[in-house]
């Protein structure tokens, strides 16, 4: 006999969502549009993440990639790297997955009002930053100069290409794109994304930087930003650690004194700086 069940907490037990669209972005990356089983859209802030669950396979943390002001459908961009992400990328229209969330602290878009912004993304790191870019564009007059620096391995690895072009055509947005290597037909920068920092237009004293990418890339960005005068209090990073519960009890996401799931994933560098510099923390 089944034990008695109680009504679930949306942060602890998933809700079913239906795939309404699966768009291939790159060879190993897709963007899913999801519709809630009970119709209520999930309101979230830019930089937050959900736990996506696939029947019998597992559950993984994935950032929300849509616009905070248009929460329906729910949008996630996923790169296939292992069992769970591979299965999620293979979902077809009409199939169901479980969603719990949203979790964590996002980008400081309120605190940054009136400031210049420099947003830096490496690879899949553009996925968690996209909601921030979209929100900034929707409320463009609230901010000073805004630059977006994007790095990828090759031109074929550039996420959201059509949208990047659209952003690049705007006069109120500086969009700089670089790749590690490219053929002769590539007409933008070649090299690491940190190199773009010296080209970005911002007033150091009034700038908030937001970075998402591999930890090594973020370390170099931090050093480069510091050279240009952006202090640790105004530098924000999105951190990644193994996650199981996403609500602060499983211990897996610990990073020094913080839990990435509830204190992050976005942190001001000033809060984590000593640990960010060390290995194996």
């Amino acid at each position: 006999m089944d034990p008695p069940w109680t009504q679930s907490d949306p942060l602890l037990t998933p809700r079913p969502y239906r795939v309404t669209r699966n768009r291939r972005e790159l060879q190993d990356t897709v963007t899913l549009e999801l519709e809630s089983g009970d119709g209520a859209p999930l309101s979230f802030s830019a930089g937050q993440f959900n736990m996506l669950y696939l029947f019998g396979i597992g559950e993984v943390p994935i950032s929300i990639s849509g616009s905070p002001h248009e929460p329906d459908p729910l949008v996630h961009t996923i790169r296939s790297v292992g069992a769970v992400t591979k299965a999620i990328c293979g979902l077809k229209r009409g199939q169901t997955l479980g969603v719990r969330g949203p979790f964590g602290k996002g980008w400081p878009l309120e605190a940054a009002i009136g400031q210049d912004l420099v947003l830096i993304a490496g690879g899949i790191g553009l996925a968690p930053l996209r909601p921030a870019v979209r929100q900034v564009i929707a409320q463009r007059d609230r901010y000073g100069k805004v630059s977006l620096l994007v790095g990828a391995r090759t031109p074929k690895d550039l996420l959201y290409l059509a949208e990047l072009k659209e952003w690049r055509s705007r006069f109120d947005l500086q969009v700089l794109i670089t790749v590690d290597s490219a053929g002769a037909d590539w007409r933008s920068h070649v090299g690491v994304v940190t190199m773009l920092i010296s080209k970005a237009e911002f007033e150091a004293g009034e700038t908030v930087a937001m970075i998402c990418g591999p930890e090594v890339m973020m370390r170099f960005c931090v050093a480069e930003l510091r050279k240009r005068g952006v202090v640790a209090e105004n530098t924000y990073l999105s951190m990644e650690r193994n996650m199981k519960c996403a609500v602060g009890y499983c211990g897996h996401c610990q990073f020094g004194p913080t839990f990435v799931c509830k204190d992050g994933p976005v942190f001001p560098l000033a809060r984590i700086e000593p640990f960010f510099r060390m290995r194996g923390v």
Partner: peptide, 20 residues
């Protein structure tokens, strides 16, 4: 066990556990 999930048609249903 913290929750279980049961197939239902094309989708599935999540059920919370709490043993009394």
């Amino acid at each position: 066990m913290i929750w279980k999930v049961v197939r239902e048609g094309k989708g599935f249903r999540f059920v919370d556990t709490q043993r009394d």
